[in-house]
Amino acid sequence: MQDFKDSQFDSLLPPLRLSRRGFIATGVGAGFTLAAGHAAAQTAIHTSATGLTAGMVQIPAGDGRMPAYRAAPAGKRNLPVILVVEEIFGVHEYIQDVCRRLAHLGYLAVAPELFARYGDPAKYTDMATLRAEVVDKASDAQVAGDLDATAKWALTQGGSAAKMGVIGFCWGGRQAWLYAMHNPKLKAAAVFYGPLGGAPTALQPASVLSQVNKVQVPVLGAYGGKDAGISMNDIDKMRESLAEGTAMDKACRIDVYPDAGHGFHADYRPSYNKADAELAWRRAMDWFASHGLN
C-alpha cells in the first residue's frame, strides 16, 4: 500500500485516541439493520453492481483497519470521489446501494463503518440500545479523522484528490455538515436531513447551528417540512445564519420538501417519499456536478 506521509490530507488528521482493543470484529454485509424496523421490500431500490468494482474493503485508520463499502466504475482511474456517511444503522444495504448509484454516475463512492470500534449496528434490534452502546460513543473528532483516512485511502484506489465531496444521511448528514467545516479540500457537500441543533456533549461538543461560520465548502441541504425530529425553527435559523455569514456560507443552500418527513430518501422505510427523494437526489447530483465533481 502507498505511503501516506506526503498526502495532502496529513495536515487534516486529528490524533485518534482509541481504546487498546482498537477496532472490534465488525464488517458490512447484505440486508438491513434490524433496529431500523421493517424494511419495505416493495419500495427498496436494488442497484446492480454490473460494470462496477464493488464490495467490502478495509481502510487503515487509527490503530486498526476500518471496514467500508466501496463502489466504482470498473477499471477507471482519476475518478471523482464521494464519501458516503451512514445513518445510525450502519453501512447496511441502503447505504451500499447509494454507493452503487453513485458509481454508475462515474464516482468512486466509499462508505466507512464509523461505528466499527464499538459494535455492529446490524445486530441491534432497538434504537435506544443501539444509540447508547454504539452511536453515541462515536465522537465528532473520531469521525472527522476516519473520514480523512477514508479520503486518503480513496486516492490509492483511483480517486482524484482534486475532485472530492461528501454526502450524508440523518446522523451522517450532521457529520457531512461538520466535515464541510473540517476539510476545505472538498468541492461540495450534500446533506439529507442532518440534525442542526442539539445540546453539546463531551464527544459531540458543538451543534451545526452553533458554528455555521466554519463552513468551508458549498453545502446543499435537503430537509422535510414534516420532520418530527428537525424543527422548521432550526431550519429557518440555519438559513438565516447562512445568509448573514461568510461568502462560503452564502454559497450554501437548504431545500425544504413540505410534504416529506424524516428519512424521506430512505427507500426501505415507511417514511420514503418517492417524488421528493428523486427530486432531492437529482438536485444533489446537479450540485456536485456544478461544483466540479464530474
Rank of each mutant, 00 (worst) to 15 (best):
residue 1 M to N: 10
residue 2 Q to Y: 06
residue 3 D to T: 13
residue 5 K to R: 13
residue 5 K to T: 13
residue 6 D to S: 06
residue 7 S to V: 03
residue 14 P to T: 08
residue 18 L to E: 13
residue 27 G to A: 08
residue 29 G to H: 07
residue 29 G to K: 08
residue 31 G to E: 07
residue 32 F to Y: 15
residue 36 A to Q: 03
residue 38 H to K: 15
residue 38 H to E: 07
residue 49 A to K: 03
residue 50 T to C: 02
residue 55 G to C: 00
residue 58 Q to H: 13
residue 60 P to S: 05
residue 60 P to V: 06
residue 61 A to C: 15
residue 62 G to T: 11
residue 65 R to Q: 09
residue 66 M to G: 09
residue 67 P to A: 06
residue 68 A to P: 04
residue 69 Y to Q: 06
residue 69 Y to H: 14
residue 73 P to Q: 13
residue 73 P to M: 05
residue 75 G to D: 09
residue 77 R to Y: 01
residue 77 R to L: 14
residue 79 L to G: 04
residue 80 P to R: 13
residue 84 V to F: 07
residue 85 V to Q: 09
residue 86 E to G: 01
residue 87 E to Y: 00
residue 87 E to M: 06
residue 88 I to W: 07
residue 89 F to L: 07
residue 92 H to N: 15
residue 92 H to W: 03
residue 93 E to H: 10
residue 94 Y to S: 04
residue 96 Q to M: 12
residue 96 Q to Y: 02
residue 96 Q to C: 08
residue 101 R to C: 08
residue 102 L to V: 13
residue 104 H to L: 13
residue 105 L to W: 08
residue 106 G to P: 02
residue 106 G to M: 05
residue 108 L to Y: 09
residue 109 A to H: 09
residue 110 V to F: 12
residue 110 V to W: 05
residue 111 A to S: 11
residue 112 P to L: 12
residue 113 E to Y: 05
residue 114 L to F: 06
residue 116 A to P: 11
residue 118 Y to G: 00
residue 119 G to T: 09
residue 127 M to D: 05
residue 130 L to F: 04
residue 130 L to A: 02
residue 131 R to P: 01
residue 131 R to H: 00
residue 133 E to P: 02
residue 135 V to K: 05
residue 136 D to I: 02
residue 139 S to V: 10
residue 142 Q to G: 03
residue 144 A to Q: 10
residue 145 G to N: 12
residue 146 D to V: 12
residue 149 A to G: 12
residue 150 T to F: 14
residue 154 A to W: 12
residue 156 T to M: 08
residue 161 A to I: 06
residue 162 A to S: 15
residue 163 K to Q: 15
residue 165 G to V: 02
residue 166 V to K: 13
residue 166 V to P: 06
residue 167 I to Q: 00
residue 169 F to M: 02
residue 170 C to Y: 11
residue 174 R to I: 07
residue 174 R to A: 14
residue 176 A to P: 07
residue 177 W to G: 04
residue 180 A to P: 02
residue 183 N to E: 10
residue 184 P to G: 03
residue 189 A to V: 07
residue 194 G to I: 05
residue 195 P to L: 15
residue 197 G to T: 11
residue 198 G to F: 09
residue 200 P to N: 14
residue 208 V to C: 11
residue 212 V to N: 06
residue 213 N to W: 05
residue 213 N to F: 00
residue 214 K to R: 10
residue 216 Q to T: 09
residue 217 V to D: 04
residue 218 P to I: 04
residue 219 V to I: 15
residue 220 L to H: 01
residue 222 A to Y: 02
residue 222 A to K: 03
residue 227 D to G: 15
residue 227 D to N: 12
residue 232 M to T: 08
residue 236 D to C: 03
residue 237 K to R: 14
residue 237 K to D: 14
residue 241 S to D: 04
residue 242 L to P: 01
residue 244 E to R: 14
residue 245 G to H: 00
residue 246 T to A: 10
residue 246 T to P: 08
residue 246 T to H: 09
residue 248 M to I: 15
residue 249 D to E: 04
residue 249 D to Y: 00
residue 251 A to W: 05
residue 254 I to Q: 05
residue 254 I to C: 01
residue 254 I to T: 14
residue 256 V to W: 05
residue 258 P to F: 03
residue 260 A to G: 02
residue 262 H to W: 06
residue 264 F to R: 07
residue 267 D to S: 12
residue 271 S to T: 12
residue 271 S to F: 05
residue 271 S to Q: 15
residue 278 E to H: 02
residue 285 M to K: 06
residue 286 D to N: 15
residue 287 W to K: 10
residue 288 F to T: 01
residue 288 F to D: 03
residue 289 A to K: 14
residue 291 H to S: 08
residue 292 G to P: 05
residue 293 L to C: 10
residue 293 L to E: 04
